[in-house]
């Protein structure tokens, strides 16, 4: 069996335990629903709106920045693993890449994207 098959077996076991717990709880728990019990929580008031409101654009920005910088990290992994075989050239390549990314980083810093207020 390949190693990824082992991983999938583990995934199935983990998921199975979760499903089992939920099913057992549904079977064993009491079921006495009422309108006010099933109401979304809003500090005791009657809820207004849907609960899926518009939210601050900051969260989108952070997610986009994460994508950019996480791709940067993803590029680093193969370099890091092969590092001892590639020598000084790879180091300066890495520095160049980091400088390019840091230009973007300082741009967002000066734009105040990371300020949150």
């Amino acid at each position: 069996m390949s190693e990824f098959a082992h991983l999938i077996v583990m995934l199935l076991i983990a998921g199975g335990i979760g499903v089992l717990a939920v099913v057992v709880s549904i079977l064993l728990g009491p079921k006495k629903p009422s309108a006010s019990k099933l109401m979304p929580y809003e500090s005791g008031n009657d809820p207004e709106g849907t609960g899926r409101e518009r939210f601050p654009v900051h969260f989108y920005l952070v997610a986009m920045l994460f994508i950019v910088f996480d791709i940067e990290t993803a590029f680093f992994y193969p370099l890091a693993v092969a590092y001892q075989n590639v020598g000084a050239f790879a180091f300066w390549e890495m520095v160049t890449f980091v400088i390019l990314v840091l230009v973007g980083y300082f741009y967002i810093l000066k734009k105040g994207v990371l300020e949150w207020n």
Binding site: S25, L28, G29, K31, P40
Partner: peptide, 20 residues
């Protein structure tokens, strides 16, 4: 395990169960 499993009316039932 023995507590009541509430299904909030305004919740998206499938995702609400899937998330945990």
């Amino acid at each position: 395990i023995f507590k009541e499993d509430l299904r909030i009316t305004k919740a998206d039932q499938l995702v609400y169960t899937l998330a945990p």
